[in-house]
């Protein structure tokens, strides 16, 4: 049998161990799914696959055991998912009956966010869906994850872009009862940004990571929930060569700035990607061009909010996997 594997892969199907058997990958932008789609996915698994489902690390579903011969039919079958979970949020899909138009840029994943979690500083799913709309479909390999707070439960530190929610805590001394719940908690669980002097709380802005814990701790709402900001950590990765945690790129960035820099990534990749490789990941491109070049290009045309801090230098250490342990 003859199949164009490139086309199949671009269509979000996998080339598997077994000849002529593929697996369908379903994106769940923002990691939150209307339960009604689960019955459709189940139907596909039962009818075309082997009745099992794999839950991916990127919060998608993979339906294994589908015959190559069925993939066009399966594409038609998943049209409601493309319609409801992609087109609905603004992703440009020419024909939802033809399956996913690209697979390079991965599902934009997100922690459960403030629809449920008390710690989250924003609606991660909603913002993930906005980013999905802006960058998908795209063939370049970019991984983005959004976390509601600096706890980073979604592991944004292992992504090309980890977007972590921050909030500016605003202190109202006239509402403070000096219980020090915020100060104690900041010392125990966060960065010791808070101290208590002359019967008032002081916040060291350099140490504060905008997690909002002080707001949550306060029994009198003396800490007001101020403006929403983001920390962006970049170029974390796993992989066979040089796994490493992402490092901070922006702190106190506005939502508009985050959206704008993510949009700019694709032009940067376009200019610098080594096309001789099958699919060069963005992290390796940054390794080659160096951080200053990346920074210059990704911030091009971006109007930074006044609070936004940018890393001067970034030194990703990670480790070389070839070294003796």
């Amino acid at each position: 049998m003859s199949f164009n594997t490139k086309k199949i892969k671009k269509n979000a199907f996998r080339i598997t161990k077994d000849r002529e058997v593929t697996a369908l990958r379903i994106r769940v932008p923002g990691g939150h799914i209307n339960a009604k789609y689960l019955s459709l996915i189940k139907e596909i698994a039962d009818e075309y696959g082997n009745g099992t489902l794999h839950i991916t690390t990127r919060q998608g579903f993979e339906v294994p055991g589908i015959s190559f011969a069925d993939f066009e039919e399966v594409n038609k079958k998943i049209a409601p998912i493309l319609e409801g979970m992609e087109k609905e949020i603004g992703v440009k899909i020419a024909d939802p009956r033809e399956g996913y138009p690209a697979a390079g840029t991965r599902n934009v994943s997100a922690c459960i966010g403030n629809r449920v979690c008390r710690y989250s500083n924003y609606d991660t799913t909603e913002m993930a869906q906005q980013i999905e709309k802006n960058i998908f479909p795209n063939d370049y390999h970019v991984k983005i994850a959004l976390s509601g707070c600096p706890n980073d439960c979604i592991k944004g530190h292992l992504q090309d872009f980890g977007i972590l929610g921050m909030v500016e805590p605003i202190y109202h001394q006239e509402r403070c009862i000096g219980c020090k719940a915020c100060v104690d908690n900041c010392h125990k669980r966060v960065t010791s940004a808070l101290s208590f002097e002359q019967e008032r709380v002081l916040r060291d802005e350099k140490r504060c990571i905008g997690c909002g814990e002080c707001i949550l701790q306060c029994p009198t709402n003396a800490w007001e929930r101020g403006e929403q900001f983001f920390k962006v950590v970049i170029m974390g990765r796993t992989g066979k060569k040089n796994p490493r945690l992402a490092k901070p790129f922006l702190k106190w960035a506005s939502r508009d700035v985050v959206i704008a820099i993510v949009n700019n990534v694709y032009d940067y990749i376009e200019r610098h990607i080594d096309t001789s490789l099958a699919k060069e990941h963005i992290g390796y491109i940054v390794d080659r061009t160096g951080y200053p070049k990346f920074k210059e290009e990704i911030l091009k045309g971006v109007e930074l909010n006044s609070e936004c801090e940018i890393a001067d230098k970034i030194n990703w250490n990670g480790y070389q996997t070839g070294e003796k342990i």
Binding site: N114, N121, L216, N221
Partner: peptide, 13 residues
Amino acid sequence: KNKDSFSANDLIT
């Protein structure tokens, strides 16, 4: 609007 302790919750005061 959005001023209670948890994000996106309103504070009634």
